[in-house]
Nucleic acid binder design. Structure first.
Lengths: 341, 341
DNA sequence: GTTAGCACTCCTTAACATTGAGTGCTAACA
DNA sequence: TGTTAGCACTCAATGTTAAGGAGTGCTAAC
């Protein structure tokens, strides 16, 4: 059996209706709601076919039909009309709080949750591909040094370093010079052991303390700052009864609390790279706790290798048109943020 | 009518039993479970008295009794045996991740949630009373300066500053000198307008740019970094049916998402300052969303004015003994953390 | 190929009876 | 006077049954 235009129209009508109401859709409803001018009996025949083909499911004998994962997949891939939607301007969000990328991400994720009424998350952009822009080592007190590292894109890392013996001004100056001249402009990934050895050698005359300091600075650089993820609107899951039962809710809430699980859920997409938008429907999710959810992710790219992911989690009967449209718009705005300067 | 020893014993038995089972407690149960050797009929008489006095409540005519807020209050104030409990060592948590207070707080709150099986939160210590230890202004590129501020207790703040015109090395040096000599050792609250004016005046010869920079640095200092709160174990609320219904759960989850609401809930205590532990039972909570919860808070003090609050949110029938005991122990450990050095 | 008609399924809801835990009250007892 | 046995009563919880209705699948006619 194969999909013809009429079946397509009927399937679309079923899904549209189900997305709206959340109730199984009967043949009579379709008969009235479409412009096909077919009786409910005819629709019934077609629906039986669609069920056999796996696009729709009957929860029980005397109920209407609901879309299966395959049905949603078909809808998302071929029927959906995701037009870009009007969204708030990222630039405004950035301007409000000068230069704090982190704060902007929090604002974005909050905005998205409010706009879509689903649970949302966003990962901070990756930095390990980024170039070092600036390193500053300063003495805070007798036995504490402060290392501040600025990475391309103006992300800042700092670390307090304990030192046993006091380091004099001259040495500080020399260390700073050394670190900056040797490391600036390098991507963090490019820094390797031989390089560190060379650095230490150049610091040479000074004893182990210097070596320790260099080690700490390097560690600060390569430190895989545990995946930074911001979330918002987790309570939105209670708006959808199919997710709001105790078991599901508890699982989802704790997933949204564990950054690692979140990172798992919104792994950077493997396919459809042209749009940067990914849709995972119900069972398509690899994470076992997400089998009753749909997840839509978008990868944003601030340039200079700073990529991050936005994720939206809702019920299977999520408003895919709206979500994908919104994500497209936001992705575009984020992508353009730093690019044209 | 007044509380005698027998009534007290019965009330205690009712509460103990209810804390365990979560079911209304009947007269027969008490008759058997206590060493009073009284028939259920006698217990019934006493229970009627206790109800009249407001310590217990009957959900409906043919049910047992459950404690009222007043009953819990009596229990917490006079009957509870909160012995300090064995808890993990904070020092170990700190040692794991060198010097990052923030990470330790996250570890503590996670540990607490696991240990108590309630939802937990902890606020980062206040800093506005703290002294400036060190200011470092550095040039990142042609039109960006980076200001790094270290506060007593080694908390670090940084801010990127846009500058219109380039600032030469000499000026940078001078600015750093100026900021450090004038501001170090001051509490943030001590910095006022006349001081800033004086600073600007001293930077004198240089034009407005310097003024801007100083303004930004000052702002970084006084910036009331939006209340930093870490939470954990929010999904624990699903373990308690009285909190797990849709409405309550949704309200609680979103409360735990909004830092402002959290700050509201665990406001630093007003009474019982000798222990630093506060218990709010059900309706005693000011926050309207918390009327079905009990909240226990503890104020910790790292010294140098660095105070923060730990909060534990659970159902009314929370295991007060355990929670208060655990909080006491953790508070003690935190208080001692920096003190003896 | 389409549709009207009809028997059938099975969820939903309401009404009703049953059960059992627990109470309040009364009267008897020590 | 305090304690207790006994008993009628209440009411949530549970189970049963019946009615209602939405929706289906199938058949036969158009």
């Amino acid at each position: 059996m194969e999909m013809d235009e009429r079946k397509t129209k009927i399937l679309q009508a079923i899904i549209r209706n189900y997305l709206e109401t959340g109730e199984p859709v009967g043949s009579r409803t379709i008969s009235k709601d479409t412009d096909l001018n077919l009786s409910s009996a005819t629709i019934r025949n077609e629906m039986a076919d669609l069920e056999e083909m796996g696009y729709i499911i009957q929860p029980h004998t005397s109920a209407g039909r609901i879309p299966s994962d395959k049905g949603y997949r078909f809808y998302v891939d071929t029927l959906m009309e995701a037009k870009e939607r009007e969204v708030a301007d990222m630039k405004d969000m950035l301007l409000e709080r000068q230069d704090k990328l982190e704060d902007m991400l929090k604002t974005v994720v909050k905005y998205l949750a409010k706009d879509t009424q689903y649970a949302t998350m966003i990962t901070a952009p990756t930095t390990h591909l980024n170039k070092l822009k600036f390193i500053q080592l300063s003495r805070v007190d007798a036995n504490h040094l402060l290392a501040v590292v600025v990475i391309e894109g103006n992300m800042i890392r700092n670390r307090m370093i304990d030192v046993a013996e006091e380091i004099d001004d001259e040495t500080m100056l020399k260390l700073n010079m050394l670190l900056n001249t040797q490391l600036n402009g390098l991507a963090i990934e490019q820094i390797n052991l031989s390089m560190v050895a060379k650095l230490k050698q150049q610091a040479g005359i000074h004893s182990g303390v210097i070596g320790d300091v260099i080690d700490e600075v390097i560690e600060t650089l390569s430190e895989d700052k545990d995946l930074e993820v911001y979330t918002s609107g987790t309570n939105n899951i209670f708006k959808y009864p199919e997710l709001a039962d105790n078991e599901n809710a508890s699982r989802l809430i704790s997933a949204f609390e564990e950054k690692e699980i979140l990172g798992d859920i919104i792994q950077p997409g493997d396919g459809s790279e042209e749009t940067g938008i990914q849709v995972y429907i119900g069972g398509e999710n690899k994470n076992s706790g997400m089998q009753d959810c749909s997840v839509v992710t978008a990868t944003y790219d601030l340039g200079d290798g700073m990529k991050g992911t936005i994720g939206i989690v809702g019920p299977r009967r999520m408003d895919y048109d709206k979500v994908v449209g919104t994500l497209k718009s936001i992705k575009t705005k984020l992508d353009d943020l730093y690019r044209k300067e």
